[in-house]
Design a protein around this nucleic acid. Structure first.
Lengths: 208, 208
DNA sequence: CACAATAATGACACTAAGTGTCATTATAGC
DNA sequence: GCTATAATGACACTTAGTGTCATTATTGTG
């Protein structure tokens, strides 16, 4: 599986880059150091990533992909609240995923001091927006490119972004780590309030 | 007024850069060319801007500032719809501002083909978000850093972004230029639907 | 107006990000 | 085990971006 090997290699580099960025800042970290830490040549690093900053994107992308995998299984007759409740029980999450989440949380918490991290973070938000457009479109039997769907996806993913930033900051800077139930409540509430289309409630497929 | 002189110099460079980016693409435009087109040395260009891409930021920033200037005058007892209606009559806008708007519209329309333009665009969206947080906080007598205010500012500015992108794309790619009234309607409607706090309607100052 | 203080610019050398090219080494399919 | 192909490394190269210092505007003041 050449696809998986390459993806593994990419995320390994992302972890090294994230650790260096958190340790000494983005500006003080050179491409050379990232390559060395990841055990690849400088040339290969630039084949993997267009810029230094984008090296951490696979970490954000992995979060998006986890979300996507879950959202695909969201039954039409279920509310967001219930769906989030049963899907984030934290029990079947492996150690690697927890480590990655920690890195992501720390990166997000540093956004204010490290503007260079904003670009990859916004790119990830954009990916989430596309993801949500797909989910909303599927639930409401509309096109993912429909204006109403795009609007709703944008507001909802913006709300999710604010929740991520708020929780990450609180956790890293003030040590306030919420329970899984609390996070879910906040997230569900924010999504519901931000949504401009009724995709949070059970939807009934148009009769055929 | 050293402040104004510098700002003028910056936006002149931004116009040159925007024209070059639209003409030959971001990748094919070098810092050297931008500097030459703007009539400054390469060294001065890099003193003005950290990156090639960020050269166009003053154009986006100007739009934000125009918006800010208007929103400061939004009376507490007025709806968004009415406010937008009386503030965007297009009559008292000078030629330079129209030219700048055209450049911005074309840049936004190219976002899909020129991912390098995404960063400055998202930075501008972020500025709008801060702006909206201020406006919402003022109208509802809350703090601009309050979670509820941040959430609402994020959803509203996301909606504004989608409107900008939709209208720009339609205008540049399909020649569909809406009337001022139409744009206002769409914008007002999107803002109202995206808002998670009731700042769009007249607010009554808390009695003292 | 002259003259000092300070800010803005240019020139030049430099570091680091990012690319093109080609030889070498893994990897996959047979 | 052998061939086709994808991935990597080595090395030279371009261009983005910075440090430093001399020169040139600008601004404020008597």
């Amino acid at each position: 599986m050449s696809r998986t090997i390459r993806e593994d290699a990419h995320i390994d580099v992302a972890r090294s880059a994230a650790r260096l960025f958190l340790e000494k800042g983005v500006a003080a970290t050179s491409g050379e150091e990232i390559a060395e830490a990841a055990g690849i040549s400088r040339r290969t690093l630039w084949r993997y990533f267009r810029t230094k900053e984008s090296c951490i994107e696979p970490l954000f992308a992995r979060m998006s992909q986890n979300l996507a995998a879950k959202l695909q299984k969201w039954p039409l007759d279920m509310t967001v609240e219930r769906f989030l409740e049963i899907n984030y029980d934290m029990s079947k999450i492996d150690a690697q995923e927890i480590e990655d989440s920690k890195l992501v949380v720390h990166l997000i918490a540093r956004l204010a001091e490290e503007p260079a991290l904003l670009e990859p973070w916004f790119m990830s938000t954009r990916a989430t927006e596309d993801l949500m457009a797909g989910v909303i479109a599927a639930r409401l039997e509309l096109s993912p490119t429909d204006f109403e769907v795009r609007l709703c996806a944008a507001t909802v993913s913006a709300a999710m972004r604010v929740i991520d930033e708020t929780i990450s900051r609180a956790a890293v800077r003030y040590g306030q780590v919420p329970t899984v139930a609390e996070s879910n409540d906040r997230l569900a509430q924010a999504i519901r309030r931000a949504s401009t289309l009724p995709f949070c409630d059970p939807v009934t497929p148009r009769g055929r």
